[in-house]
Design a binder for these strands. Structure first.
Length: 549
DNA sequence: ATAGTCACGT
């Protein structure tokens, strides 16, 4: 009788512990755990999982050995949790050791352990080890597939990730809302709408249309692929929305140059009682800057810490610097940099540099560029920014020196590339590259287009662009930049009036931007170009970016 | 009774 009572108490104490853990009340949870007279394996696992969930990895590792001493036969839950902790700290050596131990004591084959191992190896950078674990799984479970697919996507192996998804589908494995969320994210990074539409259809058919995460992924997808109305439609149909959903839509409107709507959504979000986070502010401030809504921008910037307890970070400052920069208020922008309550960051200098590039202020621009160069000489993007200003100001000698320095450090520069979706398949173009089957026609078409737009007053730039082509000398001039090849290819292979949609790895150069706008006039086509951070919707000779990018 | 995989920004 008394034993039953004790057991019952232990059960209740574990439930109370779990409740605290699930509510994130880790201080109380730890206290409860330490004061427990009768800890069992469940108590240990509960507290450990809680610590890992809240990112307290050090504390979790501190409990690992004491627990193992108490239960030397090992436990699958314990190992799954600790492997998750090593993914959290990003230490593959720790994860490997746990993997070895798990195998030794015979819990390494467990499905949960295998799945966390796959995830851990992916997050720690070894997709090969993850693949080995996956291959060894006697039965490929849904979570196993999800983890390996997400891993490939995480590492930028987008095509591989997509083909693994189809492999999963064909294997008869059950797909869940996790799978489809991952696939939508993969589609977001691919130059094809076909797969995403299919994923969207599967999602609805399988009854995951109401899932917050999958729907948010769709909102992001449609907005990144130029279908902001579709994004809005998905968003409006979501029964529950969280901060991330709102943020996706705010960023979507901002990226489409529709600042008023971004602000409207932002205001609505607050009205509905949702607390904006730093990502929300990033989106709405960037939107204000791009649409020239400087008053809204300043008001929101000031409301951050005043009303919402969100401290402006460097990127928020960078947005405001951009906002000033667009208005040509370069000195004010410089003053804002100096007034920041922290050391100015790269992004802030980069924003100033862009403003200087557009407004042709090379003096301040050079200062910004040198700041950047000095701050993180090992970082590739700094060289690119510096290269940009040298390219833009025609300083080919300095640009070449930057490229030299870059090579010396062994930093790899990826060639500029543009994808275009034509007749449901995606084509990739590299600047100056003649390997495409239609290369001859394409180059000819570019020449024709250039001649046509010259009549509209286009003057080809004489600048050289080392960013585009480090190795191919003949393509150093911007005539055959990847975006020009892609647009020529699109015009050749689609019916009149078909809008052209392209994605590229890099920011368009001035010359391409100019040429592209004029091409929309001579060809009577709409062209949209997306780079890493914005859309250019071009029509009748104008661009949605307002010539500032 | 306790465990694993997903979505927004840089």
């Amino acid at each position: 009788m008394a034993v039953d009572r004790l057991k019952q108490d232990q059960y209740i104490r574990n439930r109370v512990l779990l409740m605290h853990v699930k509510c994130g009340m880790m201080l109380d949870a730890r206290k409860l755990f330490e004061e427990m007279p009768d800890r069992n394996i469940v108590s240990w696992n509960t507290i450990l999982a809680g610590l890992v969930d809240s990112g307290e990895y050090r504390e979790a590792f501190g409990l690992f050995l004491p627990m193992w001493e108490e239960y030397p036969e090992g436990d699958t839950r314990l190992f799954a949790t600790m492997i998750r902790a090593s993914a959290g700290v990003g230490l593959i050596s720790v994860g490997k050791q746990l993997h070895t131990c798990a195998l030794k004591i015979g819990v390494g084959e467990d499905i949960f352990v295998s799945c966390t191992l796959i995830d851990m190896y992916c997050k720690c950078g070894s997709i090969e080890d993850a693949q080995l674990v996956f291959d060894d799984m006697p039965e490929k479970t849904t979570v196993g597939w999800n983890s390996i697919i997400a891993g490939y996507a995480l590492h930028g192996y987008t095509e591989e990730a997509l083909s693994m998804y189809y492999e999963m589908r064909d294997s008869g494995a059950v797909m869940d809302h996790f799978t489809l969320s991952i696939v939508v994210r993969i589609c977001t990074r691919l130059a094809s709408r076909k797969h995403a539409k299919e994923a969207h259809a599967v999602l609805i058919r399988r009854g995951f249309g109401r899932d917050v995460v999958a729907s948010t992924a769709l909102v992001d997808f449609y907005s990144k692929w130029g279908r902001i109305e579709d994004a809005r439609h998905v968003f409006d149909g979501m029964p529950t929305k969280n901060v991330i959903s709102w943020n996706a839509l705010i960023h979507g409107y901002g990226n489409h140059g529709r600042g008023e709507e971004a602000v409207e959504i932002f205001v609505q979000m607050i009205r509905r009682g949702m607390s904006p986070n730093h990502v929300s502010f990033l989106g709405v401030l960037a939107a204000c800057s791009r649409s020239g809504l400087s008053e809204h921008g300043w008001e929101i910037f000031q409301s951050m810490s005043r009303d919402h307890k969100v401290k402006p970070r460097a990127m928020h400052y960078a947005c405001m610097i951009e906002l000033l920069g667009r208005q040509g208020l370069l000195d004010e922008a410089f003053a804002l940099i100096r007034s920041a309550p922290f050391k100015p960051t790269l992004n802030m200098w980069a924003a100033l540099l862009t403003a200087c590039r557009v407004h042709q202020n090379f003096e301040l621009g050079k200062l910004a560029a040198e700041k950047l160069y000095g701050m993180e000489p090992e970082k590739l993007s700094n060289y690119i920014v510096l290269l940009n200003i040298y390219n833009s100001s025609g300083n080919i000698k300095e640009a070449a020196e930057v490229v030299q320095a870059l090579r010396k450090k062994g930093l790899m520069m990826r060639p500029a590339c543009t994808w275009i979706d034509v007749n449901q398949s995606s084509h990739c173009f590299l600047s100056g590259n003649k390997s495409h089957a239609q290369a001859k026609e394409i180059f000819q078409k570019v020449d024709e287009l250039m001649a046509e737009i010259r009549r509209l007053g286009y003057v080809p730039s004489q600048e050289k662009h080392l960013l585009h082509d480090v190795d191919e000398r003949e393509a150093q001039f911007p005539f055959y930049h990847s975006e020009k090849l892609a647009v020529a290819f699109g015009l050749l292979n689609t019916a009149d009036w078909t809008p052209l949609e392209m994605v590229q790895s890099h920011r368009m150069c001035n010359d391409c931007h100019n040429a592209m706008k004029l091409i929309t006039m001579v060809s009577r086509r709409e062209v949209s170009v997306r780079d890493g951070s914005r859309f250019h919707h071009m029509k009748d000779g104008n661009c949605s970016c307002g010539d500032y990018w």
